[in-house]
Protein backbone atom coordinates (compact mmCIF):
# COMPACT_ATOMS: atom_id res chain seq x y z
CA UNK A 1 0.00 0.00 0.00
CA UNK A 2 1.44 3.40 -1.01
CA UNK A 3 0.06 5.10 2.07
CA UNK A 4 2.72 5.82 4.65
CA UNK A 5 2.39 7.00 8.17
CA UNK A 6 4.06 10.40 8.51
CA UNK A 7 7.47 10.12 10.13
CA UNK A 8 7.24 13.37 12.07
CA UNK A 9 3.51 13.59 12.39
CA UNK A 10 1.80 13.06 15.65
CA UNK A 11 3.80 15.89 17.12
CA UNK A 12 1.73 17.18 19.97
CA UNK A 13 -0.18 20.33 19.20
CA UNK A 14 1.15 22.92 21.55
CA UNK A 15 1.33 26.63 22.07
CA UNK A 16 4.62 28.38 22.72
CA UNK A 17 5.80 28.31 26.29
CA UNK A 18 4.16 31.40 27.78
CA UNK A 19 7.24 31.95 29.93
CA UNK A 20 9.28 32.53 26.79
CA UNK A 21 8.66 36.17 25.89
CA UNK A 22 9.08 36.98 22.22
CA UNK A 23 12.09 39.09 21.28
CA UNK A 24 10.15 42.19 20.27
CA UNK A 25 13.26 44.10 19.17
CA UNK A 26 14.29 41.31 16.79
CA UNK A 27 10.74 40.97 15.50
CA UNK A 28 10.54 44.72 14.96
CA UNK A 29 13.74 44.62 12.92
CA UNK A 30 12.42 41.71 10.88
CA UNK A 31 9.09 43.48 10.32
CA UNK A 32 10.85 46.58 9.04
CA UNK A 33 13.75 45.16 7.10
CA UNK A 34 13.21 41.44 6.50
CA UNK A 35 12.22 39.53 3.39
CA UNK A 36 8.47 39.26 2.75
CA UNK A 37 8.43 35.85 4.46
CA UNK A 38 10.37 37.20 7.43
CA UNK A 39 8.11 40.26 7.66
CA UNK A 40 5.01 38.07 7.61
CA UNK A 41 6.44 35.72 10.25
CA UNK A 42 7.33 38.73 12.42
CA UNK A 43 3.85 40.18 12.01
CA UNK A 44 2.27 36.90 13.04
CA UNK A 45 4.55 36.58 16.06
CA UNK A 46 3.85 40.18 17.14
CA UNK A 47 0.12 39.49 16.89
CA UNK A 48 0.46 37.84 20.30
CA UNK A 49 2.01 40.94 21.87
CA UNK A 50 -0.58 43.61 22.81
CA UNK A 51 2.11 46.28 23.23
CA UNK A 52 3.14 45.76 19.60
CA UNK A 53 -0.13 47.10 18.15
CA UNK A 54 1.39 50.46 17.27
CA UNK A 55 4.40 48.79 15.70
CA UNK A 56 2.18 46.59 13.55
CA UNK A 57 -0.02 49.45 12.40
CA UNK A 58 3.00 51.62 11.57
CA UNK A 59 4.42 48.85 9.39
CA UNK A 60 1.30 48.87 7.22
CA UNK A 61 2.09 52.22 5.65
CA UNK A 62 5.09 51.06 3.63
CA UNK A 63 4.09 47.43 3.25
CA UNK A 64 3.28 46.27 -0.29
CA UNK A 65 3.10 42.50 0.21
CA UNK A 66 -0.55 41.57 0.55
CA UNK A 67 0.29 38.57 2.76
CA UNK A 68 2.15 40.74 5.26
CA UNK A 69 -0.65 43.29 5.27
CA UNK A 70 -3.19 40.56 5.87
CA UNK A 71 -1.15 39.12 8.74
CA UNK A 72 -0.99 42.57 10.35
CA UNK A 73 -4.71 43.22 9.95
CA UNK A 74 -5.54 39.77 11.31
CA UNK A 75 -3.14 40.36 14.20
CA UNK A 76 -4.73 43.67 15.12
CA UNK A 77 -8.24 42.19 14.88
CA UNK A 78 -7.16 39.22 16.97
CA UNK A 79 -5.65 41.44 19.68
CA UNK A 80 -8.94 43.31 19.64
CA UNK A 81 -7.96 46.09 22.05
CA UNK A 82 -9.30 49.62 21.99
CA UNK A 83 -5.87 50.79 20.86
CA UNK A 84 -6.03 48.39 17.90
CA UNK A 85 -9.47 49.72 16.96
CA UNK A 86 -8.21 53.31 17.06
CA UNK A 87 -5.18 52.44 14.95
CA UNK A 88 -7.42 50.76 12.38
CA UNK A 89 -9.90 53.64 12.38
CA UNK A 90 -7.06 56.03 11.52
CA UNK A 91 -6.43 53.97 8.38
CA UNK A 92 -9.90 54.79 7.07
CA UNK A 93 -8.37 58.14 6.05
CA UNK A 94 -5.61 56.50 4.04
CA UNK A 95 -5.40 57.30 0.32
CA UNK A 96 -4.57 53.60 -0.21
CA UNK A 97 -7.80 51.70 -0.98
CA UNK A 98 -6.18 48.43 0.10
CA UNK A 99 -5.46 49.84 3.53
CA UNK A 100 -8.95 51.29 3.88
CA UNK A 101 -10.55 47.99 2.87
CA UNK A 102 -8.27 45.94 5.10
CA UNK A 103 -8.95 48.21 8.05
CA UNK A 104 -12.71 47.95 7.50
CA UNK A 105 -12.62 44.15 7.41
CA UNK A 106 -10.48 44.02 10.54
CA UNK A 107 -12.76 46.45 12.36
CA UNK A 108 -15.79 44.37 11.41
CA UNK A 109 -14.08 41.46 13.17
CA UNK A 110 -13.98 43.37 16.47
CA UNK A 111 -17.62 44.37 16.99
CA UNK A 112 -17.23 44.96 20.73
CA UNK A 113 -15.03 47.98 20.03
CA UNK A 114 -17.41 49.72 17.63
CA UNK A 115 -20.40 51.01 19.64
CA UNK A 116 -18.24 53.46 21.57
CA UNK A 117 -16.49 54.72 18.45
CA UNK A 118 -19.07 54.80 15.68
CA UNK A 119 -21.10 57.88 16.78
CA UNK A 120 -18.06 60.13 16.49
CA UNK A 121 -16.95 58.50 13.26
CA UNK A 122 -20.37 59.07 11.73
CA UNK A 123 -19.92 62.80 12.44
CA UNK A 124 -16.42 62.97 11.00
CA UNK A 125 -15.59 65.96 8.78
CA UNK A 126 -14.58 63.66 5.94
CA UNK A 127 -17.62 62.28 4.06
CA UNK A 128 -15.60 59.26 2.91
CA UNK A 129 -14.98 58.31 6.52
CA UNK A 130 -18.67 58.80 7.35
CA UNK A 131 -19.61 56.59 4.41
CA UNK A 132 -17.26 53.78 5.49
CA UNK A 133 -18.48 54.08 9.07
CA UNK A 134 -22.05 53.39 7.95
CA UNK A 135 -20.96 49.99 6.66
CA UNK A 136 -19.47 49.14 10.05
CA UNK A 137 -22.88 49.61 11.68
CA UNK A 138 -23.90 46.27 10.18
CA UNK A 139 -22.12 44.41 12.95
CA UNK A 140 -24.24 46.07 15.63
CA UNK A 141 -27.58 44.81 16.95
CA UNK A 142 -30.39 45.92 14.67
CA UNK A 143 -31.92 48.40 17.15
CA UNK A 144 -28.56 50.08 17.73
CA UNK A 145 -27.78 50.18 14.04
CA UNK A 146 -31.24 51.53 13.22
CA UNK A 147 -30.87 54.36 15.73
CA UNK A 148 -27.44 55.32 14.42
CA UNK A 149 -28.42 55.20 10.76
CA UNK A 150 -31.59 57.19 11.38
CA UNK A 151 -29.54 59.87 13.11
CA UNK A 152 -27.24 59.95 10.08
CA UNK A 153 -30.16 60.39 7.70
CA UNK A 154 -31.64 63.22 9.76
CA UNK A 155 -28.51 65.34 9.62
CA UNK A 156 -26.47 64.17 6.64
CA UNK A 157 -26.23 66.34 3.51
CA UNK A 158 -23.96 64.12 1.41
CA UNK A 159 -26.18 61.85 -0.76
CA UNK A 160 -23.61 59.02 -0.93
CA UNK A 161 -23.37 58.84 2.86
CA UNK A 162 -27.17 58.82 3.03
CA UNK A 163 -27.24 55.99 0.51
CA UNK A 164 -24.80 53.98 2.63
CA UNK A 165 -27.05 54.46 5.67
CA UNK A 166 -30.13 53.50 3.66
CA UNK A 167 -28.34 50.37 2.49
CA UNK A 168 -27.75 49.31 6.09
CA UNK A 169 -31.38 50.01 6.98
CA UNK A 170 -32.58 47.94 4.04
CA UNK A 171 -30.70 45.03 5.54
CA UNK A 172 -31.51 45.32 9.22
CA UNK A 173 -33.64 48.41 9.80
CA UNK A 174 -36.58 48.33 12.22
CA UNK A 175 -39.99 50.00 11.72
CA UNK A 176 -39.00 53.19 13.53
CA UNK A 177 -36.78 53.95 10.52
CA UNK A 178 -39.78 54.27 8.18
CA UNK A 179 -40.65 57.95 8.81
CA UNK A 180 -36.96 58.89 8.69
CA UNK A 181 -36.57 57.15 5.34
CA UNK A 182 -39.72 58.85 4.04
CA UNK A 183 -38.33 62.27 4.97
CA UNK A 184 -35.03 61.41 3.32
CA UNK A 185 -36.76 60.47 0.06
CA UNK A 186 -38.92 63.61 0.14
CA UNK A 187 -36.01 66.03 0.48
CA UNK A 188 -36.00 68.68 -2.26
CA UNK A 189 -33.45 67.71 -4.88
CA UNK A 190 -32.91 64.19 -3.55
CA UNK A 191 -31.04 62.29 -6.28
CA UNK A 192 -32.96 59.56 -8.08
CA UNK A 193 -30.67 56.76 -6.86
CA UNK A 194 -31.30 57.75 -3.26
CA UNK A 195 -35.07 57.89 -3.73
CA UNK A 196 -34.92 54.46 -5.36
CA UNK A 197 -32.77 52.95 -2.59
CA UNK A 198 -34.98 54.48 0.09
CA UNK A 199 -38.05 52.92 -1.53
CA UNK A 200 -36.49 49.48 -1.42
CA UNK A 201 -35.46 49.88 2.21
CA UNK A 202 -38.97 50.99 3.20
CA UNK A 203 -40.55 48.11 1.32
CA UNK A 204 -38.33 45.57 3.06
CA UNK A 205 -38.88 47.00 6.51
CA UNK A 206 -42.67 47.23 5.94
CA UNK A 207 -42.81 43.66 4.67
CA UNK A 208 -41.07 42.39 7.78
CA UNK A 209 -43.22 44.45 10.17
CA UNK A 210 -46.48 43.58 8.36
CA UNK A 211 -45.70 39.90 8.72
CA UNK A 212 -44.90 40.38 12.37
CA UNK A 213 -48.24 42.19 12.84
CA UNK A 214 -50.15 39.41 11.09
CA UNK A 215 -48.50 36.80 13.23
CA UNK A 216 -49.27 38.72 16.38
CA UNK A 217 -52.91 39.41 15.44
Amino acid sequence: MPLIRPKAAGAPASSPDPRTAPDVAALKAALQHGTPDARRAAARALAGVPEAAGLLAAALAGEEDIRVREAIFTGLAGLGTGECADLLLALLRSPDAGLRGGALDALAAMPARLPARLPALLRDDDPDVRLLACGLARVLASDEATALMCAVLEREAEPNVCAAAVDVLAELGEPQALPVLARCAARPGAPAFLVFATGIAMRRIRAASDRAGEAGA
Binding site: M1, L3, I4, R5, P6, A8, A9, G10, A11, P12, A13, S14, S15, P16, R44
Partner: peptide, 24 residues
Amino acid sequence: AELRNSIDFTTVNLVDAAGMRAHG
Protein backbone atom coordinates in the same frame (compact mmCIF):
# COMPACT_ATOMS: atom_id res chain seq x y z
CA ALA B 1 -5.76 -2.50 10.26
CA GLU B 2 -3.66 -1.65 7.23
CA LEU B 3 -5.64 1.55 6.71
CA ARG B 4 -5.88 2.35 10.41
CA ASN B 5 -2.13 2.12 10.67
CA SER B 6 -1.56 4.26 7.58
CA ILE B 7 -3.18 7.40 8.85
CA ASP B 8 -1.89 9.54 11.66
CA PHE B 9 -4.48 11.11 13.95
CA THR B 10 -3.58 14.14 16.04
CA THR B 11 -5.28 16.86 18.04
CA VAL B 12 -5.10 20.45 16.83
CA ASN B 13 -6.86 23.76 17.29
CA LEU B 14 -7.24 25.69 14.02
CA VAL B 15 -6.54 29.01 15.73
CA ASP B 16 -3.42 27.82 17.58
CA ALA B 17 -0.56 28.89 15.31
CA ALA B 18 2.11 26.86 17.09
CA GLY B 19 0.03 23.69 17.17
CA MET B 20 -0.86 24.05 13.52
CA ARG B 21 2.77 24.75 12.56
CA ALA B 22 3.89 21.56 14.34
CA HIS B 23 2.02 19.55 11.68
CA GLY B 24 4.25 20.81 8.86
